[in-house]
Amino acid sequence: MRLLVAGALVGCLSLNACSSERDQWCGHVEEAAPKIGKALDEGGSENGLLDALPVLHDLADEAPDDVRGEWRTLVRAIQDLDEAVEAEDEKATQQAALKLASPDVQDAAHAVDQEARDVCHTPLF
């Protein structure tokens, strides 16, 4: 038990460092949430995600370690769809849309949204 507590304290060096990192992350989330919401409102579920891709990519770059993998999964799936749409490749677009709707990507989207709600009290989607 002592090792767990010591490891947690060493990881942040102080409670203020943990709080500062969390506050910085939540600032990013709070700034991005209205942009994501606007993109989804204006573009619908598929085009909205494509329109929100730059904002989502920025969040993925800043994401905490505990959800970084989920952010990468989500952003990569949206990027694949964006690339297929840009290439006007109907088959690739269908495959990318199926990937975006896959359980792995949906779980990742849920995880990043839930983390934003739990930690920052800000929904993303």
Rank of each mutant, 00 (worst) to 15 (best):
L74F: 00
A97R: 09
R117A: 02
W71R: 11
A97F: 06
V10M: 09
D51C: 05
L50N: 01
A97P: 08
V5F: 11
A52T: 04
Q24M: 10
E21V: 09
C26R: 00
R72H: 11
D51Q: 13
A6H: 07
R22S: 03
E115W: 11
A17S: 13
W25Q: 05
P103F: 10
L3R: 15
S14W: 02
A84W: 07
E46V: 14
R22T: 06
A8F: 14
I78Q: 04
D61K: 15
D89G: 09
L100S: 02
L59P: 08
A33E: 01
R76L: 12
A33D: 00
A77W: 07
D66W: 09
V105W: 10
D107C: 02
W71E: 02
A101M: 13
R2K: 15
Q79A: 06
A111L: 08
E62L: 07
A92L: 10
A84I: 06
A77L: 06
E88V: 14
E70C: 07
C12S: 15
A92E: 13
D65Y: 08
D104P: 03
L56S: 09
A77Y: 00
M1L: 14
E83C: 00
C120P: 02
E70G: 03
T122W: 07
D113F: 04
V5K: 15
V55N: 02
Q95A: 15
Q95E: 14
A96I: 03
L81E: 04
T93C: 11
A97N: 11
L13N: 12
W71V: 03
D107Y: 10
V85W: 02
A39E: 01
A63V: 09
E21A: 09
R76V: 11
A96F: 08
G37P: 01
R68A: 14
D61W: 01
V10F: 09
F125V: 12
G27E: 00
R2F: 13
W71K: 10
A109H: 00
A111S: 11
E46W: 10
V75W: 08
L9E: 14
P54T: 09
A33W: 01
